[in-house]
Amino acid sequence: MSASLSLNVAAILEDGRRRTRRTLLGTAMGVAVILSAFIYAGAFDLGRYVDAVPTIWRLACDAMPPDFSRWHAWGRPLLETLSMSVAGTVAGALVALPLAALAARNFVHTPFIGEPVRLFLNVLRSIPGLIWGVIFVAAVGFGPLPGILALATHTTGMLGKFFAETIEHVETGPGDALRAHGVSRLGVLRFSILPQVLPRLVDVSVYRWEHNLRAATTLGAVGAGGLGLEIVTAFHLFEYREASALILVLLALVTLINVVGATVRRRFLGSVAG
């Protein structure tokens, strides 16, 4: 008994040593990969940094003080950017939800549905929002509409993956209870999974909305209208002072959305205690 016991203990200790060695090896390899990434990208090419600070300083000086004289012309692009972000986020989230259910491994067990859906979400996500912007500007013309479509497409790819992972981590007990009572798969999704994951979905969607507001601005650069177009135009006309004023307006808007978003998220997640 005691001989076999000490043998077992020795085996467990040996297993612990093996794990430590593996962790050390893994860490060393990780550090090597990260370092070579920095070197390959030229981040340690110190000569390139010499001109950077004076140039940025000159640009900053040219942009001071901010010029708000054209403020009356900014209302429309501001609203365009805001509505693009809201519509793009909601449309993206609504499409993401059913796709996420199909992609969740604990909900759809056959890989013949799950794999293609996961691949599809991957493609939506892999193509940058800016490229989607170019594609949709070509497809439906200039203005906020291609912006909404581009935001929604990329949002579906990102939220779909995230929603699916949230669904995969849901507690199975309440769903089992429903299945034991003869509730269908769709019913389990509606009555057990959705109520459990809803706060997380809202949380991530609001976060994504904040992201989409900034993305909507850059989409303006490829012709999707809004505040971004104004900023790019100001830069092209060397109106750096107007551009800096516009950037301040954008900053105020993003801050406002962050505050609103934080409030919404607190309302949904705040009372989880207990």
Partner: peptide, 16 residues
């Protein structure tokens, strides 16, 4: 299942 009810060990309730 229609005529069955199940009570679970770990409650299996939705907390929120």
């Amino acid at each position: 299942r229609r005529r069955t009810a199940m009570v679970f060990q770990d409650h299996a309730l939705i907390g929120r």
